[in-house]
């Protein structure tokens, strides 16, 4: 196999990787934020809120990510256009980002929920007893501890998300994989570029997983 074309292609590939990382970081931040709200909703005593949150989680966990991406890229702008009366260009990056945030939130929510449930009830009781509000209890007592416990799991889910971002290929967003594929096609060495892409994903995910494992050992209470 002739790998000679890869070196001159590296700057272009880096652009793709930059987009992948940007998508990843924003999706993790958005997904964890939304996921936390959904987890709080699921644990709330408000029945309607709890079942709405549950429906959200079940819904997004039932459908393929590829379908969600297509929805947000092709159909949602149509709905926006109808709501605003104007063509509302969302653009592929934002569409994919929103799709990832909404989708991953369902997965992050389950992790956060488990994290919150792992905190002894007595702590919340004690905090209420000294006059804290619900918001204060969650913000100052429960969530900080829960997040400490959940961090490794959240990071592991983020590594899965890192790999899943490659699915934006379906809508033609130029992420790392798509850039590699497209360059490979044009240069006429699709196989070499695909193998390179696989190797890069492997090395980064593997290294990240190893780091998460070490973190897990250090954070263990």
């Amino acid at each position: 196999m002739d790998f000679s074309q890869i070196l001159p292609a590296l700057p272009g590939l880096w652009q793709g990787m930059a987009l992948t990382l940007q998508l990843l970081i924003l999706a993790v931040l958005g997904g964890v934020a939304l996921g936390t709200l959904i987890a709080l909703g699921r644990l709330s005593h408000h029945r309607l809120l709890a079942s709405a949150a549950k429906l959200y989680v079940n819904y997004f966990r039932s459908i393929p990510l590829l379908l969600v991406i297509s929805w947000f890229y092709l159909v949602v702008p149509l709905v926006l256009q109808w709501l605003t009366g104007n063509p509302s260009p969302v653009g592929p990056f934002t569409s994919c980002l929103v799709a990832f945030v909404m989708f991953e939130a369902a997965y992050f929510a389950e992790i956060v929920r488990a994290g919150i449930q792992s905190i002894p009830k007595g702590q919340a009781g004690a905090a209420y007893a000294i006059g804290m509000s619900y918001g204060q209890v969650m913000r100052l007592v429960i969530l900080p501890q829960a997040f400490r416990k959940m961090t490794p799991l959240l990071l592991q889910q983020s590594i899965i998300l890192f790999q899943d971002t490659s699915l934006v290929y379906a809508v033609g967003l130029m992420d790392f994989l798509n850039t590699a594929r497209s360059k490979g096609d044009i240069i006429g060495q699709p196989d070499q570029f695909l193998l390179l892409a696989g190797a890069v994903y492997f090395v980064s995910s593997f290294a990240a997983s190893a780091l998460v494992k070490r973190l897990q050992q250090r954070l263990a209470i």
Binding site: Y73, L78, N86, V90, G91, G172, L173, M174
Partner: peptide, 16 residues
């Protein structure tokens, strides 16, 4: 904006 044969029409329609 990159389009494919399959996405070009919906993307024109939806304002992207």
């Amino acid at each position: 904006n990159l389009v494919t044969a399959q996405t070009r029409i919906p993307l024109i329609q939806n304002g992207t």
